[in-house]
């Protein structure tokens, strides 16, 4: 069973990997590339813990085949901070206690970042619906939603 050779870009770096056809992009990230920040909560696209950006689109990496990544550009949680400098959403999540166990946090951050890039000034309802595919069982979402709104407001004020 020959593996597929895939050339892609992850967090700005050129990456090549070999994968079996059955492997999802999430499997590849976690098991082949040791990028374990993307989490598997359901493997069916229902929880959003594996959220990544593929060619500037927010997707569940559990619903993308590894081979499909050929030629694409992928962003994961590992690329969100700029070196030592956290992204404003990361910083705000910390300040606002917007995480408890933290397993859903990478997915929320990736999804929230993609929202603010498309819609820099969302309403609370828009934030809630955009993030409806990211399940959190700890926080009741309150502090997550507030954090996204606050980052948007601060970016507007800046």
């Amino acid at each position: 069973m020959a593996k597929n050779h895939v050339t892609t870009t992850i967090n700005g770096e050129p990456v090549e990997f070999l994968c079996e056809t059955q492997q999802t992009l999430l499997d590849v990230l976690r098991d082949e590339l040791q990028l374990t920040g993307s989490k598997e909560g359901c493997a069916s696209g229902d929880c959003g813990a594996c959220s990544v950006m593929v060619d500037d689109r927010l997707v569940c990496s559990c619903l993308v085949m590894g081979v499909e990544a050929e030629g694409s550009s992928i962003e994961t949680i590992e690329g969100m901070a700029d070196g030592e400098n956290l992204h404003p959403l990361q910083q705000k999540f910390l300040e606002n206690a917007a995480l408890q166990c933290g397993i859903c946090t990478p997915g929320f951050l990736i999804a929230a970042k993609s929202l603010l890039e498309k819609n820099p000034d969302p309403t609370e309802t828009e934030v809630r619906y955009w993030l409806a595919g990211n399940l959190c069982r700890c926080t009741g979402y309150d502090k997550i939603i507030r954090s996204v709104l606050e980052v948007a407001a601060e970016a507007k004020g800046a």
Binding site: V54, L58, V64, W130, L131, G133
Partner: peptide, 9 residues
């Protein structure tokens, strides 16, 4: 159909 993530695909 599905979440924002699903909508991307």
């Amino acid at each position: 159909v599905g979440s924002t993530q699903i909508q991307g695909r």
